[in-house]
Structures are given as structure tokens and as C-alpha cells.
């Protein structure tokens, strides 16, 4: 059997204890939620960790609740529970859809929303064993200096592959991270103890597939907050994959349309994933769609033009396995499907 490397496992029951365990264990420490992404990556020796801090015992990180106007989802809530939650289906339908199509049924039972948000990037040249990677001389993301996707590439372009991220972008989610102040931070004037940092989801990512997030490994995601959305909010998530189960997305498109009482689009957002290291927002979406009324010729023309324009900004790279040309060709198809599913 492909074995896990050795590590010490910590099993805190509170967030504070988790943060302490992580702080005490040093930089080669990882939080583990459901483990469905981290464990294969550990087995592949893509990640080196001397310590794992399991979040399985922290009850406060589970559950879906309303906090004032915000919908708050605990990061340890399983994807199955997110997908089947009436609250999520009603307030953020695209997120419920996305959670319901992550991998296979067992992955969704053990995998969590927080884990999916923090999923590592993927590439056809990285998600294999150490032996396999050694046979091609490794790559930029881990252990190597060369990019096999882009000849001469200096920055890793492994693809952001978390289904849930695209819908979270469209609903303007905020991610709350907590960490313990390090001695350096305290020396620089920060207060001692637990630091809390809300990060708007579209500020989480950077264009570096080696590690595509702007939060540190010692920062723990403790809440996913979704603001109240207007009554006319519609959302959809479309996933491209060969099989109807288990597969990671080859392309993912989330769309949001908010309609006013007259049925006119007042807000539009389209976000693509699995294209590059970070999600790509189709910036032309509001220009094209806001002010249109679904069902009218004007809307149809605007939608057609949006799909056409999007192919210029959403460019699939040959980073993940599969047919890049086909993925690119599916960009307008999935955008159209996502928008139509909203109206």
C-alpha cells in the first residue's frame, strides 16, 4: 500500500488548542480537516509535514447557522451537509450545487467545506508519487526548477480546482482565519493571543500554483460567512468532468444573477476555476448583463456576446490532465449553461 510518511498527530478539541499545537510544532505543520486532499498529497510526498493537527474533534467548527444577516458555515461541515442544507440551498444555491458535485459520495461525507476552500492546486505533472515525479526531474511546484506546462515558466501554474470557490466568489463570501501571534508579531506590536483576520474570498488567492493562498499555514479557517443576498438572487455552478462522479473539475463556472422585482438583472457575476492558479472573474459579465431582462432578445444577444468575450479572458492552460482544447471550447458552453440555469 502507498504509505503515509511519518508525522505526529495532534487532536485538539478547541480552536485555541489547535492554534497552540500548530504554533508549538513549527513550520512543518498542517491542519487536517477531512483529509481527502491532504492525505493523498502527503502520500505523494508533495507536502512534507512533521506534525498534523486534526480538526476532527473541534465541534465548534461544524454547523450551519445564521448570524444576523450572515449565513455562517463552520469549515468542518461536511460537503454532504452543505449540499443538503436548505439554508444553503436557499441563500447560496450555487454553493450547494458545487458542494454536491465535489468528487464522490464518500469524499463529500468526509471532506469538508473548509478543506475544499483550502484545497491545494492540481497539475498533470504533480499529483503523482515521488518516484513518478523523480522520473521527469520534478517540477516548479515541488522539488524541481522546471515547469513542464509552460516551457521556461518561472511561476507555477497548477490549477485552482476547488469547486466551492467559484460560487463563494460570486456570493462575496468572507473567510475568517485565526492564528496565534508569533513572537515576531508580538515584538512588532501585535497583542498576544488569538488573532482574527477576515479575508474576502476574492482576496485569498495569488497567481502562484506552488501555494496559491495569501494566508499562512499557521492560520486556521474558522468561519465561512456569506452575506445576505437580495431576494432575486440566483446562482448556478457548472462543472466539466468526464465521469459523473469522483473526478476533479476540468473547468468550473459559477454564475450569479440578481434580478429585481421587474425581472431585470441588477447584479451579474461569472467566475471560472481550473484555468490558472487562481479563480478568474469574467469582468465583462456585469457590463453585458446588468440591465437586461432574461427572455428578451436583448438578453440573448448580450449573453452570446458575453460567452464570446469570455473566451478571450478565460484561457485554459495544459496544466491539468485532459484535453486543453476541449476545456477551452467548453468555456462559453458552460458560461451559457450557468447563466441559463439562473433564469
Amino acid at each position: 500500500m502507498l504509505r503515509l510518511p511519518t508525522f505526529e498527530l495532534h487532536k485538539p478539541t478547541t480552536v485555541a488548542a489547535a492554534l497552540e499545537a500548530a504554533a508549538a510544532s513549527g513550520p512543518a505543520t498542517r491542519f487536517v480537516a477531512g483529509g481527502t486532499d491532504l492525505l493523498p498529497n502527503l502520500k505523494h510526498e508533495m507536502i512534507e509535514a512533521d506534525h498534523l493537527v486534526s480538526l476532527a474533534g473541534i465541534e465548534s467548527l461544524r454547523g450551519i447557522r445564521l448570524d444576523g444577516d450572515d449565513l455562517v458555515i463552520g469549515p468542518m461541515t461536511s460537503l454532504t451537509d452543505v449540499a443538503s442544507s436548505e439554508l444553503v440551498q436557499e441563500r447560496a444555491p450555487a454553493l450547494a450545487q458545487a458542494a454536491g458535485v465535489v468528487a464522490g459520495p464518500q469524499h463529500r461525507n468526509q471532506g469538508t467545506l473548509g478543506g475544499n476552500v483550502m484545497l491545494d492546486t492540481r497539475c498533470q505533472w504533480i499529483n503523482q508519487s515521488y518516484f513518478w515525479r523523480s522520473a521527469l526531474g520534478f517540477c516548479l511546484k515541488k522539488d524541481g526548477t522546471e515547469c513542464h506546462v509552460i516551457e521556461g515558466g518561472k511561476r507555477c501554474v497548477a490549477a485552482v480546482s476547488n469547486d466551492s470557490i467559484a460560487p463563494l466568489y460570486t456570493v462575496g463570501a468572507k473567510l475568517v482565519f485565526q492564528s496565534l501571534a508569533t513572537p515576531e508579531m508580538i515584538a512588532a506590536g501585535a497583542p498576544e493571543g488569538v488573532q482574527t483576520r477576515p479575508v474576502p474570498v476574492d482576496a485569498l488567492f495569488k497567481a502562484d500554483g506552488a501555494y496559491n493562498k495569501k494566508v499562512g499555514l499557521q492560520e486556521l479557517l474558522t468561519e465561512i460567512r456569506i452575506p445576505a443576498l437580495p431576494a432575486g438572487h440566483r446562482g448556478s455552478y457548472q462543472k466539466l468532468r468526464l465521469r459523473g462522479s469522483i473526478d476533479f473539475p476540468q473547468l468550473g463556472i459559477a454564475a450569479r444573477l440578481d434580478l429585481d422585482e421587474a425581472g431585470v438583472i441588477v447584479h451579474a457575476d461569472v467566475v471560472a476555476i481550473v484555468v490558472a492558479a487562481r479563480p478568474v472573474r469574467v469582468k465583462k459579465a456585469p457590463d453585458q448583463l446588468v440591465g437586461q431582462t432574461p427572455g428578451t432578445p436583448g438578453f440573448e444577444a448580450a449573453l452570446a456576446e458575453l460567452c464570446d468575450l469570455a473566451t478571450r479572458s478565460v484561457k485554459a492552460l495544459p496544466n491539468i490532465p485532459g484535453d486543453t482544447e476541449w476545456r477551452q471550447r467548453m468555456v462559453p458552453v458552460l458560461i451559457e449553461d450557468a447563466i441559463r440555469a439562473c433564469v
Binding site: G104, Q124, Q128, W132, R243, G244, S245, I246, P321
Partner: peptide, 12 residues
């Protein structure tokens, strides 16, 4: 190209 049951997809 992909020696795993993820990269060599068996139908579900």
C-alpha cells in the same frame, strides 16, 4: 501519463 485510478478513470 497517469498511473492511478483517478487519472485512468474507470466508469462509475
Amino acid at each position: 501519463a497517469g498511473p492511478s485510478l483517478l487519472d485512468y478513470p474507470l466508469a462509475t
